[in-house]
Design a protein around this nucleic acid. Structure first.
Length: 538
RNA sequence: GGGCCUGUAGCUUAGCCAGGUAGAGCGUCCGGCUUUUAACCGGAUGGCCAAGGGUUCGAAUCCCUUCAGGCCCGCCA
């Protein structure tokens, strides 16, 4: 059974109506792990639907959280905003400085980072039913009940956190972080509580009061989380394994949620995604891939497939190199398996039935639009194929022509094909593209080639060179020249091609040779052959 | 110190929750294919399921122990 189906099944024992939640802090640091969280939720939602459960997907945006530090992409002037809520500070401009003009027009720091992320989610087929901006939720009193309960039962909350997490809280710890006279949440001390008013004194010695029902501040994280579950009725939420550690925020949240009078959500911890590819030195070279960047390289359904095929508790090494091509191939292979059908169901072993059901789920959860049947694999141009053609043909129009000639498409490219080519070109131009797939066209004969090319080929190469000097420079004519000259000399085509691959690419195989030569300058090809002939003759 | 996850073929892994003769993909090798876009088709190769013990008629699967690797545990997702 697919992992998402197992979770849906577990949820069905609890009731027929569910709310699956997911969250993010728009501090600017989006990474691919965030994508796992949100896709995990999205897939669970789809699984619940196919199990006939009523399901709502809510997404919490923690824009009430304060800015923690001046991130590397921010200008030093952000120092003044540390401790201020993300919904309340200006967005950075392209140089990382606060952009007050945009802030005036309503774009906060949080919104600035959220915009593209939300767009990306739409693009990757994540269907969120409700986006909850925490800042607004606090302002409009959504957290009022939970906040008052927490403040009235400070001792109980403190007891839970200290006992479960095993850490000691300061004597003046209080389950409410107010905002001081400057807008900061840092360095503030609580001096009194008179439901629903918190009195405080800030680092500058100013004192003031906050109404916890009006969002003049927020609950600290360990209380904030269960408070969200409580008011929104969350029944399921996947979270990173940091929260899942013993004494972590899920453990304390569970008890606090019960204190608030509600049942905690069904938990699922997911493992981190780390970056592989680019060799092992990705961290040392500073090469990282955020979710937005990943979407510039990979078709969205492949990224979904990456998440769908791995159980949440499985660590993923996101490999932007050759493993990506294998991943894409695997996905397309499964699409075509699905097309072929399962065969007679009763003749399948239990294991085969399990595998089939899982295959169906994997494809369902990977598709961008689950209401449409997945595009037939036979209509698709494979990832691998596109990687080659895109390298050989610099012009998009020539790529389409090539695909038409090989019968992969008829007429103009349709569907997501143009977008896929764009992604492929991005990938090829990026440092992530695997060297093993890169075509290295030689300008002079390589040493490794010499070891594999035979002196007997000189005659053939000479004749071929003569033909190529005068023939029409089209792939058909070039191909004819290669084949005819080989035939005349009783050279097996396989051998002829291998010889030429060695000369042109310094390896013994490759994409259709005539296509490569056609893209090259005629004189360059002639020169290359000449150098091979000279080397072989000497 | 507390805890989580992982260990199955050269590699990536399915199967484990509900015990019943270990399945894939990639790779490798062989064969086929007279014009090869890393293609395609057919076949073969390859596992004391990390180790040990227990439960059972029967264990990759359940229980215990050990070993190895990864990760989390101030704030923060």
């Amino acid at each position: 059974m697919h992992w998402a189906d197992s979770i849906a099944k577990a949820l069905s024992h609890r009731g027929d109506t569910h709310v699956v939640a997911s969250g993010i802090t728009p501090s600017g640091e989006f990474h691919i792990g965030h994508l796992r969280e949100i896709l995990t939720s999205d897939m669970i939602k789809r699984a619940c639907k196919s199990h006939d459960l009523e399901i709502e997907f809510v997404w919490f945006v923690d824009d009430a959280d304060p800015l923690r530090k001046v991130y590397s992409f921010l200008d030093e002037s952000y120092e003044q905003y540390i401790g201020h809520q993300l919904a309340n500070i200006p967005p950075p401009d392209s140089s990382g400085k606060p952009d007050y003009d945009r802030f005036e027009s309503g774009i906060s720091y949080a919104k600035h980072f959220l915009g593209p992320f939300i767009q990306a989610l739409e693009y990757i087929g994540v269907e969120i039913d409700e986006i909850i901006y925490n800042y607004d939720a606090y302002k409009s009193g959504k957290f009022a009940d939970a906040s008052r309960i927490a403040c009235n039962q400070t001792d109980e909350i403190r007891e839970i956190i200290e006992r479960v997490s095993g850490r000691e809280l300061d004597d003046d710890w209080f389950p409410w972080n107010p905002i001081d006279s400057t807008g900061s949440m840092d360095g503030i001390r609580i001096t009194g509580w008179n439901d629903p008013i918190v009195s405080w004194i800030d680092s500058k010695g100013n004192d003031g009061q906050s109404d916890v029902t009006k969002g003049d501040g927020k609950l600290p994280w360990r209380v904030d989380w269960p408070a969200k579950w409580s008011w929104r009725g969350v029944t399921m939420e996947p979270f990173g394994k940091d929260h899942g550690a013993a004494g972590g925020s899920y453990d304390t949240g569970k008890e606090i949620c019960q204190l608030l009078g509600d049942q905690p959500p069904y938990p699922t911890t997911y493992e981190w995604i780390s970056l592989k590819g680019v060799g092992a030195m990705s961290s040392s070279t500073g090469v990282t891939v955020g979710p937005l960047e990943a979407l510039e390289l990979v078709p969205p359904e492949i990224l979904r497939y990456l998440i769908a095929r791995n159980k949440p508790n499985r660590h993923i090494d996101f490999d932007t190199g050759s493993a990506l091509i294998e991943l894409a191939d695997e996905y397309q292979k499964k699409l075509s398996d699905l097309e072929k059908g399962s065969g007679e169901w009763d003749n399948l072993s239990r294991r085969q039935q399990v595998a089939w059901a899982k295959l169906e789920s994997q494809i369902l959860y990977s598709s961008i639009d689950p209401t449409k049947p997945p595009q037939a694999a036979s209509e698709r141009v494979t990832f691998r194929h596109l990687a080659l053609v895109a390298q050989i043909r610099g012009d998009d129009a020539d790529v389409w022509k090539s695909l038409q000639q090989s019968g992969l498409i008829s007429g103009v490219p349709t569907g997501d094909l143009p977008r896929r080519l764009e992604l492929m070109r991005n990938w090829i131009d990026s440092p992530h593209f695997p060297e093993a797939f890169r075509l290295n066209i030689q300008s002079e004969i390589a040493e490794t080639a010499m070891e594999n090319v035979d002196g007997r080929d000189v005659d053939y190469l000479g004749a071929l060179r003569t033909k190529l000097a005068s023939c029409e420079w089209t792939s058909q004519e070039i191909n004819a020249a290669i084949c005819n000259e080989a035939k005349e000399r009783d050279i097996a085509l396989r051998d002829a091609f291998q010889t030429l691959y060695w000369i042109v690419l310094a390896q013994d195989y490759g994409p259709k040779l005539a296509s490569i030569l056609e893209e090259m300058d005629r004189q360059a090809v002639l020169d290359l052959l000449q150098s091979a002939i000279v080397e072989l003759s000497s």
